[in-house]
C-alpha cells in the first residue's frame, strides 16, 4: 500500500511544484516545458507504464489523474503509453490519431522523434519518424500537431487496445481536472463576499456546489473503476462507461464552476479556465460521450434484456 501511494504523493508534489500559471500560460503560447519534462524523466514518470517498470498499468493511470488535477502541460499519458508500446525511453515520442496519410492531434510532435498513430477502428497502431509538422492546438490551448504518416510502420501493442487506453487517459485526466475545479470553486465561494457575507452562505450557491461535488465524485469513481478493469475482459465496456459518464460530468461541473466564479472566472488571469477548458477539450478526445455510449449500448443490446443485470452487476 505504501509503495502504491508513494508514486502518487511524489507526483502530487512534483506536479504541484512546477505547474504554476506562468508555466501553463507559456505552454499554451507554444513553449514546450522542457525543464519540467526533464524532471519527469529524471523521476521515472515517463517510464511508469512500461512493461518492466515494476508498476501496474493502473498505477500509471493514477498518476495521469494527478496530472489532470494540475493541468500538467507535458503530455504525460501520451509519452508514457508511447514508451510502453515502443519499449523505449531514449527519444521523446507521443501519440496522435492515425488518419489516412496523416497523424493528427499529436501533442508536441515538434519535440518528438517518433509519433504513434492510433485509430478508433482497432488495435493496429502505426509509428512514424517525425518529418514536417503542422502545429495546432485543442480548445484548451494544448498542442495538437499534425504529422505526415509517410513511411509509417505497423506497431504491435501486444494485448493493449491503444485507443481504449488513451480514452481512459482522458477519462482520468478529466476526473483530476474536475477535482481541481471543485477545490477552486469551494475556495472562491468561501472568499468572495457579496451582500456582506461569503457567497458560500447563499443556499443557491451551496446547492450548486453540492451538485458540482456529486458530479466530481461520480467522475472520480467511474475513472477508478475503469482503471481497475484494465487487462480484464471488462476493459472496453468499463472504459466506455467511464468516458461517457465523465464526459457528462465535465459539462455540468465546468458550467457551475464558472457561474460560481462570476466574471473573475471568465478572465484569463484566473486559473479556473486552465482546468475547465481542458475538461471541455478532453471529453471530446478519443471518443466523446456519444461514441462510447453507443459502444456500450450496442454491447448491452447484444447481451440482451435477460442477462443485462448480470452485465451491470459484474465486478464491484
Amino acid at each position: 500500500m505504501s509503495t502504491d501511494t508513494l508514486h502518487i504523493d511524489t507526483a502530487s508534489r512534483i506536479f504541484g511544484d512546477h505547474c504554476d500559471k506562468a508555466l501553463l500560460d507559456a505552454a499554451e503560447a507554444g513553449e514546450f516545458p522542457q525543464a519540467l519534462c526533464q524532471v519527469l524523466a529524471d523521476n521515472g514518470f515517463l517510464q511508469l507504464a512500461m512493461h518492466d517498470s515494476g508498476f501496474a498499468l493502473a498505477d500509471a493511470f493514477a498518476v495521469i489523474r494527478i496530472a489532470g488535477r494540475h493541468a500538467l502541460p507535458v503530455p504525460l499519458a501520451e509519452i508514457m503509453l508511447a514508451n510502453r508500446w515502443l519499449n523505449q525511453t531514449d527519444a521523446l515520442a507521443t501519440v496522435g490519431l492515425a488518419a489516412g496519410e496523416k497523424i493528427t492531434a499529436a501533442p508536441w510532435a515538434t519535440q518528438a522523434k517518433l509519433v504513434v498513430g492510433v485509430s478508433e477502428l482497432g488495435a493496429d497502431a502505426i509509428v512514424v519518424r517525425v518529418g514536417d509538422v503542422e502545429q495546432g492546438a485543442n480548445l484548451a490551448g494544448e498542442s495538437r500537431d499534425q504529422v505526415a504518416a509517410t513511411a509509417s510502420e505497423p506497431l504491435a501493442c501486444g494485448s493493449d487496445e491503444p485507443y481504449e487506453l488513451l480514452a481512459l487517459a482522458r477519462t482520468v485526466q478529466t476526473a483530476g481536472a474536475l477535482e481541481r475545479v471543485l477545490e477552486l470553486s469551494l475556495d472562491y465561494a468561501g472568499e468572495r463576499e457579496q451582500f456582506g457575507r461569503p457567497i458560500s452562505k447563499f443556499q443557491a450557491i451551496q446547492h450548486n456546489l453540492a451538485v458540482l461535488a456529486a458530479e466530481v465524485a461520480a467522475a472520480v469513481r467511474a475513472g477508478d473503476a475503469a482503471a481497475a478493469a484494465l487487462g480484464t475482459p471488462r476493459q472496453r465496456v468499463e472504459i466506455a462507461a467511464a468516458k461517457a459518464r465523465v464526459g457528462e460530468a465535465a459539462g455540468v461541473v465546468a458550467e457551475i464552476a464558472h457561474q460560481v466564479h462570476g466574471a473573475m472566472g471568465f478572465t484569463h488571469e484566473h486559473r479556473l479556465h486552465h482546468f475547465t477548458r481542458r475538461a471541455w477539450a478532453w471529453r471530446d478526445e478519443f471518443g466523446n460521450d456519444v461514441f462510447w455510449r453507443r459502444e456500450l449500448g450496442a454491447h448491452i443490446a447484444s447481451v440482451g434484456a435477460d442477462a443485462v443485470w448480470d452485465f451491470i452487476a459484474t465486478r464491484g
Partner: peptide, 13 residues
Amino acid sequence: ADAIGRIASHLMT
C-alpha cells in the same frame, strides 16, 4: 444504443 449506453454509464457508476 446511445440511450442504453447513457443509462448504463450512470447506473454502473
